[in-house]
Amino acid sequence: MPDIVVRRHSVHGMPVDQYASALRERLPDSEVAVARTPNAERDLVADATVVTGSAIDEALLDRADALRLFASTYAGYDHLPLDALRERGVALTTASGVHGPNVAEYVLGAWLSLARGFLRARRQQRERVWQAFQATDFAESRVCVVGLGAIGEAIVARLDGFGVETVAVRHSPEKGAAADEVYGYDEIHEAMADARYVALACPLTDETRGLVDESLLRTMHPETVLVNVARGPVVDTDALVDALRRNYVGGAVLDVTDPEPLPADHPLWDFENVLLTPHNAGHTPEYYERLADIVAENVRRAEENGAWDGLRNQVDL
């Protein structure tokens, strides 16, 4: 029976066989199997030490008597049965850090696209309109990053060289950051008051749900470009629509929405200063390679230490 079972759910449309191959390269002494059907999953997990995939439910956990680690292929874990994992003594790790470089590039590209008017340029190109228009400098702007996990830190790091003022919002501001200023969530209005570019890269928690509400949108500068690569519910969608209609903000780039996906008749589709992408900012052809590095490192740590604890990206259950 296999030591590691890879669930059949692909990430960003990439076949899970690539993931399994990457794990086999890094762990040649472990047997890695891909569970291609629900029945195969139920059979294979019975003796597996590690199961990896986007999710796992309690029914599958009930069959996984030897399971010691569920290695999520996502950075977020709010969708997982945390209580059930804890009760069964199963460690949980995430894909945190896998998305850092590519999501940071997405955010920088989004900010620059709106600063330089690329959305308008694309529309004029479709309409065969040759008409000059004004753009905005990104340099010397105040840029705010909310959330300083692996993605937030990667965004801040890539701002070097752009000549901007960087501010960050994090749960524990006393930890500091590479940003010029660091605020707590209770000071988020102060952090965003003069920011022209804002990125949301925080986890979805009770504290961050609805964080960007009508009040915070009113605090933002009318030219602020808001980018959300966190979770849709971090933003109050109705409040954002109202702010866009009233020109309280300059524009938005949303890789995540609430609801998700957006209904075809949702008003966000129709704003010229809004760019929507289908929750794929995290895609990179290196996804499985980076993910396999994390899982392989944790398997080796557990073998050396004799315990599934102190793992990279381990969630405290």
Rank of each mutant, 00 (worst) to 15 (best):
D3M: 02
R8P: 00
R8F: 00
S10H: 08
A22R: 12
D29H: 15
V32H: 04
V32F: 04
A35M: 08
N39I: 10
E41L: 15
A46E: 15
V50M: 06
A55I: 01
D57R: 01
E58V: 09
L61K: 00
R63K: 15
A71T: 00
G76L: 02
G76V: 03
Y77K: 01
H79I: 12
H79W: 10
H79M: 14
L80E: 04
P81Q: 08
R88Y: 00
V90A: 00
A95V: 05
P101R: 14
P101N: 14
N102H: 13
E105P: 03
L108W: 12
G109V: 12
S113C: 12
A115Q: 08
L119S: 12
A121D: 08
R128E: 13
W130S: 09
W130E: 04
F133R: 04
Q134V: 14
S141R: 15
V143F: 06
I155A: 07
L159V: 07
G163A: 11
H171F: 06
P173S: 10
A177S: 15
A177Y: 03
A179D: 09
Y183H: 14
Y183T: 07
Y185I: 07
E187V: 03
A191S: 13
A195W: 10
R196I: 00
V198C: 10
A199P: 09
L200Q: 12
P203Q: 12
V212H: 01
S215A: 15
M220P: 06
H221S: 13
P222N: 09
T224S: 08
V225W: 06
V225L: 14
L226E: 07
V229D: 04
V234L: 04
V235H: 03
V235L: 11
A239T: 02
L244H: 08
Y248L: 12
G250A: 12
G251K: 05
A252W: 07
L254E: 04
L254T: 10
V256G: 05
T257K: 03
D258K: 03
P261C: 11
D265Q: 15
D265P: 14
T277N: 07
P278T: 14
H279V: 06
G282A: 14
E286Q: 15
Y287P: 01
D293Q: 13
A296D: 03
E297L: 02
V299Q: 02
V299D: 00
A302T: 07
A302V: 04
N305Y: 01
A307R: 15
G310C: 04
L311H: 00
D316C: 03
